[in-house]
Design a protein around this nucleic acid. Sequence first.
DNA 1: GTGGAATTTGAACGCAGGTTCAAAATCCGA
DNA 2: TCGGATTTTGAACCTGCGTTCAAATTCCAC
Lengths: 208, 208
Amino acid sequence: MSAVGSPALPSPHVRAKRRRRRAEILEAALRAFRDQGYHATTLDDIAARVGVRKTALYHYFPDKEAILYACHRESLLEVGRLIEEARRGYGTAAEQLAHVIREHVRLMTDTLQGSPFAFDVGALSPGHERRVIAARDAYERQLRAIIEEGVRRGEFAAVSPKVAVFAILGAINWIARWYRPEGPVGGAELGRQFAEHLVGGLTCRRAR
Amino acid sequence: MSAVGSPALPSPHVRAKRRRRRAEILEAALRAFRDQGYHATTLDDIAARVGVRKTALYHYFPDKEAILYACHRESLLEVGRLIEEARRGYGTAAEQLAHVIREHVRLMTDTLQGSPFAFDVGALSPGHERRVIAARDAYERQLRAIIEEGVRRGEFAAVSPKVAVFAILGAINWIARWYRPEGPVGGAELGRQFAEHLVGGLTCRRAR
DNA sequence: GTGGAATTTGAACGCAGGTTCAAAATCCGA
DNA sequence: TCGGATTTTGAACCTGCGTTCAAATTCCAC
């Protein structure tokens, strides 16, 4: 071990093992919260999905709310990238918006990482709730900016960007409530159909 | 009182009073469930909104789940009428769908009666859950039928009616998560914008 | 006015679930 | 191998909340 009186850092191997366990717990929690809701999900539920007793969870997370917050954080990291990718990869607002929709749907269906966007934030501590809401607001503002640009360029009808974003996010977030990966429609195809429907509702109306 | 041995029916006045109290409890519960979710709402919460102690609620409902189920039933009664009205009042699929969307949005925003559509059904007893799901499925089938007819007539693009209905209901149900009646957009205007966006996304694409 | 019905109340109970704790088991680096 | 670190466990604790109960209060129909 290291010098006397100086606590040793765990080895890289032990740190990696701990990270894997945390990731496993978070994935189990994410699925449980998505299936049943935060309040209806018990620590016993999550622990059972991992294969341990619930008291083991306290070795990795201080409490249940911290698990929920970690799920939110991972989700926000994922969606945070979508806008940058859209801006970099596409020239028109319609293409950018379609990309974000497709990718957001993929997060809801393939990795389920987008599911926390559908979670109520009321179960978070006040500080955590503020942070999650701030990040969600930033994402929504970026979506609104894309729509505003589309309206300005004449690509989109003169809609309220705020209302349009709520409608789009509502359609996407609701996927957590009904989509099952074993169903007949794959995530990519679902994303394509959602993008056509939701972007189409903006682009075509300008012709009237 | 009535004849010995024969329990008296309450008078019309007492029955009316009882109905008003039940309606008051259901409205308070509906708002509390919508604001906080079923599990995070306590009977103390609901009772406080009514102005009684929680034990008084047991005079009108056998338990907490019965209150939730009654909220669902009222909501389903309301939305059940939308399709009939749409079929009677409009000739094209686009007009019918637009009407249902506008009116469903109104239920979400004005009376809040549509909010239970956004609630998870997991908290209901198995029997109640089956009934609520059956009624929701019937509503979704009717929406799909409108869209199928629109596709058949060439009014709508060749979309998957199932996916389109999920997208539409997702956008509408999500209103319970963000809409506040004191905000700048009224329910009627919101309904109009949602109808334009969501129906527009179906009608225009057939031109391509 | 009054007896009975209806409604509400405060107190109490029981239990589920989040959390703590100390001991046991497993892992790991030297 | 082995001592110490890490992880997991079973037991226990505590609290919040749904529910029950008996008594008190209010309402109502005659």
